[in-house]
């Protein structure tokens, strides 16, 4: 599983399939403050991520 964090740092490790929201929470990220893309497509955070998938976490900062 490959996870790209908002600061562009990457985590790559073997992981059991998990709901994206739970992955975010385990990383200390509030799901409401980010948008997630699974294998390049934006998805809701209740989608399951398999070990072979890539997750990109995009945080949107405040500012008009």
């Amino acid at each position: 599983m490959k996870i790209i964090l908002p600061d562009r740092k990457t985590i790559e490790e073997e992981r059991e399939p998990a709901v994206i929201k739970d992955i975010l929470e385990s990383l200390g990220i509030n799901p409401a403050s980010v948008i997630v893309a699974k294998n390049g497509n934006i998805v809701p955070d209740d989608v399951i991520l398999e070990n072979a998938d890539e997750l990109k976490i995009i945080s949107f900062a405040h500012g008009g």
């Binding site: 409401a32 948008i35 900062a61 500012g63 008009g64």
Partner: peptide
């Protein structure tokens, strides 16, 4: 919501990460 707005411009192809104020 802010999240919907960012999603909207991403899906429309107009999202560019800009410097923060």
């Amino acid at each position: 919501s802010e999240k919907e707005i960012v999603t909207y411009i991403m899906l429309k192809g107009f999202y560019t990460p800009l410097p923060e104020c």
